[in-house]
């Protein structure tokens, strides 16, 4: 008898938080499933067809889309570009963000001013940022070119967005410019939780400034580092904006990121089947990187 009562109670859940509470999830669940998760599965389906986005009488063509992608080399090139871009974003945003946060964490006058300056770019829309930096990078008349002229160098030869090697680094710099302020604010919040007395103890024991940072501050904010790195990796893998607004993936294929290539195949070439195959591969790449990163970061956090 007792057992049965207990069982029944467990099935119904506790009286304060009954199972029917799950009804609260339904609206969000339906929206999320229909417009975010279900489309991912549709990608797998479309990737085996020659669907062009307009004509619904499409054929199944097996793995042909996948073969074409590997043969053309677009896939490997885009993966390579996206990975380079991601590494640049992760290192750039986090090093700059952490450095500025550490400086601002000291007792300084004008802290709010410095914080505002570094955060300001985060308020702008990516499209506006793209326009502004198109001017900054413009050959001949742009900001950097004019500055080079000013100090007596040949500004007309400065054309970073038209350069096969440097274009990718140039758009990554734009993304870092826009995002490191946000990273900095998160680091600042993490640093403020570091116990002053630990640093005092370290100083009394004769630690150098670098030892204080390496042995006390960094280990204590390791969870903040994890969050910021994860956020930058996710942002880097999604790289699209500046390849779309500033370079159109060019010169050649130098700034084709995964997401920009998908967009180009789908909307410019109108090949939805091929774009879907590309998306499927991208998705697998993104999942693999995210999972291995989470495993690595978890291990690292324990070690520190």
């Amino acid at each position: 008898m007792e057992m049965q009562k207990l069982r029944r109670r467990r099935l119904k859940g506790s009286p304060i938080f009954p199972k029917k509470m799950y009804a609260f999830v339904i609206p969000a669940f339906i929206l999320f499933l229909t417009f975010w998760i279900f489309p991912v599965f549709q990608l797998f389906y479309y990737s085996f067809t020659n669907f062009n986005g307009i004509n619904y009488h499409f054929d199944f063509i097996g793995f042909k889309n996948y073969f074409t992608l590997f043969h053309q080399g677009t896939l490997i090139n885009s993966i390579k570009n996206t990975l380079i871009y991601t590494v640049l974003i992760v290192v750039g945003s986090n090093v700059l963000g952490l450095a500025v946060a550490m400086a601002l964490n000291m007792k300084l006058k004008g802290k709010t001013f410095f914080r505002t300056c570094t955060f300001l770019p985060a308020l702008f829309s990516a499209i506006v940022v793209g326009f502004i930096w198109s001017y900054v990078y413009m050959p001949d008349k742009g900001m950097i070119a004019s500055l080079l002229e000013l100090i007596g160098m040949d500004g007309s030869r400065f054309n970073v967005l038209g350069d096969f090697t440097w274009a990718l680094y140039a758009i990554a710099a734009v993304e870092i410019w826009k995002s490191f302020g946000t990273t900095m604010i998160i680091y600042l919040a993490g640093l403020q939780t570091v116990d002053e007395s630990l640093l005092e103890a370290g100083k009394i024991d004769g630690c150098t400034e670098w030892q204080l940072i390496r042995k006390i501050k960094l280990p204590l904010i390791s969870s903040t580092i994890t969050i910021n790195v994860v956020l930058s990796v996710i942002a880097g893998l999604k790289a699209f904006d500046y390849a779309f607004i500033m370079t159109n993936g060019g010169p050649g294929k130098a700034t084709n990121t995964l997401m920009y290539t998908i967009y180009k195949i789908a909307f410019n070439e109108q090949m939805m089947g091929k774009a879907s195959a590309f998306s499927v591969v991208s998705f697998i790449v993104i999942i693999l990187i995210t999972i291995s990163m989470l495993i690595f970061m978890n291990k690292r956090e324990v070690e520190l």
């Binding site: 990608l43 699209f240 997401m259 993104i286």
Partner: peptide, 21 residues
């Protein structure tokens, strides 16, 4: 985890099926 998983899906990747839906 179902909801968190959505964080890593980029909009450009799923835009074609979404437009179809």
């Amino acid at each position: 985890y179902f909801f968190i998983a959505g964080l890593i899906i980029p909009a450009q990747m799923v835009i074609v099926p979404i437009a179809q839906t």
